[in-house]
Simulated assay, not measured.
Amino acid sequence: MTRRRPTRSADDLLTALGRLTAQALERAELQKARVELAVALQRELLPSALPEVPGLRSAARYAPARHGLDIGGDWYDGFWLPDGAIGFSIGDVQGHDVEAAAFMGQIRIGLRAVAAAVDDPGEVLSRANDLLLSMDRGLFATCSFLRFDPATGELADARAGHVPAVWATADGDGGIVQNAGGVPLGILPGEAYPVTRRRMSETEVLVLLTDGVVEGPSFSIETGLEQVTRLVKAGVGTDPAELASQVIKVADLTGHTDDAAVLVLSHTGATDGTG
């Protein structure tokens, strides 16, 4: 004889529904709290101001992910070095949560510490790479590190698996920086990073960014970089903060789900102490 399963009353169903709703709300509140914590941590870890010298102005913008879920990995930075040069970095940590935001802060501080002791940008990235591997966090990061000498106008840069920069000059020339690079930080021990050295020309603009600016469901990275290149060419001579604001808006066109960062360096040709 087949036994019939007891019929659940309406009260039982409402009780079960209420329990599931409460669990869902609890998970939603927890996720909301994690997002808010990651956003707050991210903003606190980013620099409040960037260094400037006669002949070089800089500006940056950061935008969290459109839906507030994928945040915490992108950063930009600018800081004085002991010999009077300026270091700039921009990068993107694997992952998008509180852990990624905290790891981003560690990388940013680590780069500052290494750059204070090492002049060569490639060596800075190589030592930072070994430092990250020694931490054994299981995360990696893409990064570009630049060193600007105000006395000579020389820019030296190295890249670890990061999105290439975009440049333009007042005469209408410009494009994507085609410099060599190495693998992201935190993957291979003993990795070497080639360095590109050149003098910035007068009225030149260099824009560094993370992939959240130029890549998303609506845009390929190539299309995004083309869009940024057009903006940068048209924006030579404008205020760097205004140009950074225009470039960060490209992220809205891509339908991005990642956070995004932009760093603009505007060179006017007059170097410190040289006219």
Rank of each mutant, 00 (worst) to 15 (best):
M1V: 14
T2D: 09
T2H: 15
T7G: 13
T7Q: 15
A10W: 13
L14Y: 10
G18V: 07
L41F: 05
Q42F: 01
L45S: 09
S48G: 10
P54D: 09
R57S: 10
A59M: 13
Y62L: 12
A63K: 13
P64A: 13
A65Q: 04
D70Y: 11
I71W: 03
W75V: 08
F79H: 13
P82A: 07
D83S: 13
G84S: 06
V93F: 00
A100Y: 01
Q106K: 09
I107T: 11
I107Y: 04
I107K: 04
R112L: 00
R112K: 12
A113W: 02
A116D: 05
A116S: 11
A117S: 15
V124F: 00
V124M: 05
R127Q: 15
L131V: 09
M135Y: 10
D136R: 15
L139R: 11
T142G: 02
R147G: 01
T152Y: 09
T152L: 09
E154G: 02
A156C: 08
A160Q: 00
H162C: 03
H162L: 03
V166E: 03
T169S: 07
N179I: 07
V183W: 04
V183L: 13
L188P: 09
P189C: 04
T196S: 09
R197Y: 09
R199L: 14
E204R: 03
V205D: 01
V205G: 04
L206F: 06
L208I: 01
L208N: 00
L208A: 05
E215W: 00
L225M: 12
T229E: 13
T229V: 07
R230D: 14
V232P: 03
A234C: 08
V236T: 11
G237H: 06
G237A: 12
G237F: 14
T238Y: 10
T238Q: 12
P240T: 08
E242W: 11
I248A: 04
A251D: 01
A251Y: 00
D252R: 01
G255E: 01
T257N: 14
D259K: 02
V262I: 12
L263R: 05
S266P: 06
S266N: 00
H267E: 06
H267V: 14
T268A: 08
T271H: 12
D272Y: 14
